Amino acid sequence: MSIEQEVFGSGVAVVTGAGAGIGSGIARRLGQLGMHVVVTDIAGDRAEAVAAAIRAQGGRAEAQTLDVSRPAELDRLAADLFRRHGAVKLLVNNAGIETIGFSWEVPAERWETTLNVNIHGAVHGVRAFVPHMLKAGQPAWIANLASVGSFGVMPTQTAYIMSKHAVQSFSECLFLELQMAKAPIRVSSVIPGMLKTSIFDEAGGKGEPPAASHHRKVMRELMSTYGMDLDEGCQRIVAQIAEGRFWVSTQPEMTTGMIAGRVDFLTRQTDPTLSEQARHLLES
């Protein structure tokens, strides 16, 4: 029996933003392993489609419509699931959105939505679920979706990048807090590199700056050409979470390179600069 099957062969898993992309891939993998997967998404039809696909392959899944930017919805979900199931073994705070444009051109509403989903979704997911996990007293796992962008910069993707820096630091502090509390809960920071997802497909709401469409097109083409297969990436993610790793990377060499660049920048304390690859992307 593999470590994945041993750890995640049973129990309840909650995956936010699982109607598409990495969330859907993680949910499907957990369903294959034997968990009862609670597939949540702001679009209920997308959540149900993923849940139905898991059930069609013999797995167990239910769909829940959830807006992670609303803390009360996370509170209600946590209370309901612990009431019905007694425990939640794995919480994956995956929900996230991409926003593109110069910081001063992104509408205030889009700024608020991005930070509320990407940062507060993870924060309030933890706040809502951990008290129930502690009360249940059983081993549990929490995985927060960061990014290789957590260790770099990219102008015009500022809202997304800063949110992922925040998720990374939140996960590090949470890891230490749960250690201090002597809680049987493991924390992972999930650091996807470039996976083939639809994150750059949809425009970032009303009023998205015109130049954003070009940036999205370039990023879509890069993902299509160089991205890792989604299912392969999600299998790697689930396996590393099961192993109890804090650092969970789909492409470790990419993560290592981004961190090395960040360390060099912080050590030398120079002005921020763009890598040649990033410069080419923005100028193409």
Score class of each variant (00 low, 15 high):
45 D>E: 15
3 I>G: 00
237 I>P: 02
91 L>A: 04
263 V>L: 15
244 G>C: 03
280 H>K: 11
114 T>A: 13
211 A>L: 11
60 R>T: 12
137 G>V: 05
253 E>A: 13
151 F>N: 06
62 E>I: 01
269 Q>I: 07
275 S>G: 13
187 V>D: 06
241 I>T: 07
95 A>N: 04
190 V>C: 06
218 V>P: 01
90 L>Y: 00
57 Q>R: 12
28 R>F: 03
272 P>I: 10
188 S>T: 03
213 S>I: 09
53 A>P: 00
211 A>V: 13
180 M>Q: 15
268 R>E: 10
96 G>A: 09
168 Q>N: 13
263 V>G: 10
20 A>K: 14
36 H>R: 09
181 A>F: 07
269 Q>K: 15
242 A>V: 08
232 E>K: 12
85 H>E: 13
130 V>N: 06
27 A>C: 05
83 R>T: 12
173 C>P: 05
270 T>D: 14
268 R>V: 00
104 W>K: 11
278 A>F: 11
198 S>P: 10
43 A>E: 14
95 A>C: 08
30 L>C: 03
126 V>S: 07
254 M>D: 12
130 V>M: 02
180 M>V: 12
262 R>N: 14
252 P>L: 01
81 L>E: 00
88 V>C: 07
212 A>T: 05
86 G>C: 01
206 K>W: 06
218 V>I: 13
111 W>C: 09
161 I>S: 05
72 A>F: 07
198 S>E: 15
259 I>P: 09
212 A>V: 02
71 P>A: 00
54 I>Y: 03
67 D>H: 11
263 V>W: 13
87 A>C: 06
208 E>Q: 09
113 T>Y: 09
69 S>V: 04
74 L>I: 02
80 D>K: 15
103 S>R: 05
157 Q>I: 03
284 S>C: 07
104 W>A: 08
230 L>H: 02
186 R>H: 11
205 G>H: 10
205 G>F: 11
183 A>M: 04
61 A>W: 07
247 W>G: 00
136 A>L: 00
106 V>I: 14
211 A>E: 13
101 G>A: 07
164 K>P: 00
96 G>S: 06
131 P>C: 07
259 I>Y: 10
236 R>H: 12
134 L>F: 07
83 R>S: 15
74 L>A: 08
108 A>Y: 12
174 L>Q: 10
143 A>L: 00
204 G>M: 01
175 F>A: 06
140 A>L: 02
257 G>L: 09
253 E>L: 11
274 L>A: 10
26 I>H: 08
248 V>P: 02
45 D>H: 14
26 I>S: 06
19 G>P: 05
175 F>Y: 10
34 G>D: 03
54 I>H: 04
265 F>Y: 11
232 E>A: 14
